[in-house]
């Protein structure tokens, strides 16, 4: 395929993905907006007012970056895992596999679909948050880069999950039993300073800690972890996830007989 043909194929996949999640917006966009609004009301407004300051900011200001990042992580992940597994389940993935579209274009198409949903939900959540607090962006560069890297990483993770999944249970196990605990323990609702040394050390094994803190730095200018180290780790995991995803597609594992 020429580069132009590859671009057309890529845009076809992206458009199809966007159309899919917009068609079922009550299942894809609305739940995050409602859930995050509840977090803002309960943790930010009701309980937060009694907690006082955290990291030099009101509790509401402190949790907003984490909650936005939580929306990005869960949505970019769940978009790819459900869409790609769905296409495996109904065999429509064969439409792509029999076509001359290169595997990396297929992967990029799904990943960008996931990124777009993550970002769209993040925008919705950010708008909702403005009803509860004032947001001042410390570094637009950090915010943009970390949003793109994080959504890419978790879209790729969703893709890997979808390749290995055999049934619908398999696509909910990882989000429920791995992703959600890592997010909750990733410093969304608290600063690492509050943890005893041992648990603060253990927390540093959680990749979500770097994601949440790097994004919090972009918004508030404070972070519990070193920013270059956080960037390095997220980039490394993204490269590894992309390489492995492409290997899965090239080998045809669980896709071709």
């Amino acid at each position: 395929m020429t580069l132009k043909e590859q671009y057309i194929a890529f845009m076809t996949i992206v458009r199809k993905e966007i159309k899919r999640y917009l068609r079922i917006w009550t299942q894809t966009l609305l739940p995050s907006a409602i859930t995050m609004s509840l977090y803002f009301v309960i943790f930010g407004s009701l309980i937060g007012s009694r907690i006082g300051e955290m990291g030099g900011f009101t509790y509401m200001q402190f949790v907003v970056p984490g909650l936005i990042m939580m929306a990005i992580v869960t949505n970019s992940y769940s978009n790819v895992v459900s869409s790609f597994f769905g296409s495996k389940f109904n065999n429509s993935v064969e439409e792509l596999l029999v076509s001359p579209t290169p595997n990396y274009v297929i992967l990029l198409g799904y990943v960008v679909g996931g990124i777009s949903r993550g970002i769209l939900v993040a925008i919705v959540v950010t708008i909702v948050s403005l009803f509860f607090t004032h947001l001042h962006i410390h570094s637009y560069f950090v915010v943009v880069v970390i949003v793109l890297l994080t959504s890419t990483l978790f879209a790729l993770a969703g893709f890997i999950n979808a390749v290995f999944a055999n049934n619908f249970d398999d696509i909910s196990i990882i989000p429920t039993f791995v992703l959600t605990p890592l997010i909750y323990l990733g410093g969304v609702f608290y600063s690492m300073d509050l943890l005893p040394d041992f648990w603060a050390g253990v927390s540093k094994l959680n990749p979500l800690v770097y994601v949440v803190n790097a994004f919090r730095y972009g918004v508030l200018g404070v972070s519990d972890v070193s920013l270059p180290f956080a960037f390095g780790m997220i980039t490394l995991f993204t490269v590894l996830a992309f390489t492995y995803s492409l290997h899965l597609l090239n080998s045809g594992k669980r896709l071709r007989q």
Partner: peptide
């Protein structure tokens, strides 16, 4: 319509 148009896209056919 979408199914057929998408398939054309996978073969690099312009919209």
């Amino acid at each position: 319509m979408d199914i057929v148009i998408n398939q054309a896209g996978y073969y690099g056919l312009p919209a």
